[in-house]
Computed example of a mutant assay.
Amino acid sequence: MSKLSEQDIEKRLLRFPDWEYYDDAIHAEFEFENFKDCFSAMSRIAFECEALNHHPDWSNVYNVLTISLSTHSAHGVTDLDFKLAEAIESIVEPEED
């Protein structure tokens, strides 16, 4: 799988307003009502990760989930990262301010 150009990444990110590109990865942060809801979303995302055989760098502090996606073998962002981002978006609905 080949690494996408920065231009291509920025263009694709127009479909993902909650995501940003920096440090050779796409990043997002999602806030939930409580820890249980956050952990539940992480569990559902884990099934998608296994199905795609692609796993995020992520962390959870109470009700906030922080995710970074990149394809380590390509040393940057690939189509696979956007496939996983799309799956994550279908699971996660960020809290509106």
Rank of each mutant, 00 (worst) to 15 (best):
M1R: 09
M1A: 14
K3D: 12
E6H: 06
D8G: 03
E10P: 03
E10M: 03
K11H: 00
L14F: 03
L14V: 07
L14H: 04
R15N: 10
R15K: 11
P17H: 03
P17I: 09
D18V: 12
Y21S: 03
Y21T: 00
D24E: 01
D24P: 02
A25K: 07
H27I: 11
H27F: 11
H27Q: 13
H27T: 12
A28K: 07
A28C: 08
E29Y: 04
E29W: 02
E31P: 02
F32D: 08
F35G: 02
F35C: 08
K36Y: 13
D37C: 09
A41P: 01
A41T: 08
A41V: 12
S43A: 15
S43P: 09
I45K: 14
A46F: 14
A46G: 15
E48A: 15
E48V: 07
E48Y: 10
L52D: 08
H54R: 05
H54M: 08
H55W: 00
H55C: 00
D57A: 13
D57G: 06
S59V: 00
N60A: 12
N60T: 04
Y62C: 07
Y62K: 03
N63I: 00
V64Q: 08
L65W: 15
L65F: 15
I67E: 09
S68I: 06
L69H: 14
L69K: 09
T71L: 07
G76E: 00
G76P: 01
T78R: 08
T78P: 07
D79F: 01
L80K: 13
F82S: 01
K83C: 06
A85F: 05
E86Q: 12
E86F: 04
E86R: 08
A87W: 11
E89I: 01
S90M: 14
V92M: 09
E93N: 15
P94V: 15
P94E: 03
P94L: 11
E95L: 13
E96D: 05
D97K: 10
